[in-house]
Design a protein around this nucleic acid. Structure first.
Lengths: 205, 205, 205, 205
DNA sequence: CATGAATGAGCATTCATTCAT
DNA sequence: CATGAATGAATGCTCATTCAT
């Protein structure tokens, strides 16, 4: 895989919608090239095959997301506040790039099959949350739970599915506002819970 | 698509693992037929094509899941208790059929593309939760949230992603126990939240 | 091939239109069965295979035609008069059964490949004409030509192509009248020729 | 269907014999490709399917025939002489390309189904004859008949069937001589008729 | 006798990839 | 450096035929 020129990379994003629509496996190289507006053979000049094209696209997208979330997560403030920022950042980036997001999550199943992709997903989405949970326990702004891994996964799932749903829906056109609203809902749920009575001291079950 | 005999349906489940492993697009019809132990042409006698085979499998699985979750959700007891039962039921059925579940979520992207499947998913997973949330507000066991749709989606996401993760992992062999443990974690999170201080009265942001 | 019940035979004629439309090779057994209104497997009860079904249909049709033409050709009268009757009979039967005729002639190419069919065609269409030409020379009503075979073939071709054209066209609904009119044209041509000056005695070349 | 390179076109003629022998429906794409000496996939690069390959071949052949016949028909001389030339030209080209001719007539049934092909046939064979008949009336070398369309069709049929018969037979190896001999027979018939007595003035029937 | 269900064997078509220019 | 033309290797699907009932 040669150094991909920025111009080509940006053109390739034009294919994200296609991938979101058809799925990775069903997106033909011809279609990807057409959607990107470049000759098919040119793809093969820069990439060694279809999979590499897709890997490049996904990696690029994930890098973007990881960056934004990472920034929010490492800002100053309490872990709890930063968790809220990170949730919002994650939703914001998903709603900003709905096609990319659909392509990514739509072929989530591939994560099961491509370890590399699974790791990148973990890095971009899951780890920041897990870290913030731990930090929250340290700085006293979040309580200690029994199975932090499951909780991080739950939060990740809540964000991802809610974000995907909004991305697929696509009816709104103020994505920043949507992200803020949804993030508020999720954070309210995750922080305050739904119970009308405080948890009894003996545990929940 | 002809009426599929029960015997054939059950044989087809033998192909779920394959689909989970390879993904639908990469699972050759020959392989599916082999995995199910039936001649390829017989598949085409009952289904109009590869996609219909998958659609049948997914629909069948979703029906199963919907049944189990529905039973839990409509048992006697407070809505809050039933929510906990439903979460556990959902996780239990996911862990009971890990291959099916992986196939389902693995091709989740298809849900974006097949409205029919999206509707079935909604029916099996999402709606029971949404209903219980509303009932909880009525019977006073769950508090009223601002955006119940987003909350239901979040819970659905938490369960699904956590369940998928456990299904993919597959290291344990007491799935019922796993389901109970994970369900407890999720419910603790969803009911009690993570905040160390009660939500301030002005709202969280 | 079992004795074919008359009822079945008549039903099979319902498939002639289909064969005319699609061609023999492209008419699927399923389609033939559907067109005839009988179960596909029943065809296989009476016939050993697709080809036999087709052979039966074609043979039956040709038998019909041969009979009508034969009757006209063996009526009393001069050979020349009987030639005219035979031409008209042939056209009449073609226009009476346009689908059969199209199926038969449309797959004329098959005659090249199925010797049996070629022989039957010869018998039904070509031989009566050749015989009448010879008889006409004997009874003095038709002149002797140099290559009687070529002439018989020419007449056969003129009738067949003209009849096929009319059968395909299908715009008229008085087939008997059409047949008479076309037959008159052909006979006028074949008997009197187009030359404005009599043939010179040395022959045409 | 892309622009077909001349080289490819000429190679495809190598498959005409095969199509003539087997018929289009029974000629496998593999066999056609083999007979033409090109990879199967290359056929699909230029044509959208098997049918288009045949359509191209037939159209190409018909173009050839139309050219030769057109030349003969537009030479100087009386219409009657040119009719004789055209008949001979048509037979000559049929006997020169027996495989093509057999393929053409063999799938003549297709003409019933492909309007495009029917039009091309009309153009190549039928129209020149019809024109010459009309011109013959004008220049006084051919008499006026009642139904010129039927007569043109009859002549076309006579030539085609006779030519096909000779092409299928294929026993001779001096095709030019054969064409001349058959053409003479047909022209003798068409010009002078078979009647031993002149047509009676009241018409033939 | 007749037929619904099932299938073996084959085939048209697709598509990722190569490579000469 | 970029690409139009060409193709090898699969693969989804069809369809004539069988057979238990």
């Amino acid at each position: 895989m040669r150094q991909v020129p920025a111009k080509l990379a940006s053109k390739l994003y034009g294919a994200a919608e296609l991938i979101a629509e058809r799925g990775l496996a069903d997106a033909k190289v011809d279609e990807i090239a057409d959607a990107a507006g470049i000759p098919k053979a040119t793809l093969y000049y820069y990439f060694t095959g279809k999979d590499e094209v897709l890997a490049f696209l996904l990696a690029d997208m994930l890098g973007l997301i990881a960056g934004e979330v990472g920034t929010a997560a490492s800002a100053p403030g309490s872990a709890r506040d930063r968790l809220e920022s990170a949730v919002e950042a994650q939703l914001a980036v998903m709603l900003d790039h709905p096609a990319v997001c659909r392509a990514l999550v739509g072929d989530l199943g591939r994560a099961t099959r491509l370890p590399e992709l699974a790791a990148a997903l973990q890095e971009a989405f899951h780890r920041p949350i897990a870290s913030l949970l731990a930090e929250g326990v340290s700085d006293g702004t979040l309580r200690l739970v029994e199975d932090p891994g499951a909780v991080a996964l739950s939060i990740f799932g809540a964000i991802t599915v809610t974000g995907l749903s909004a991305a697929v829906d696509g009816s709104s056109n103020d994505s920043a506002k949507d992200a803020a609203r949804i993030a508020a809902s999720i954070c309210d749920l995750m922080l305050n819970g739904l119970a009308t009575t405080p948890a009894n001291p003996e545990g929940d079950r």
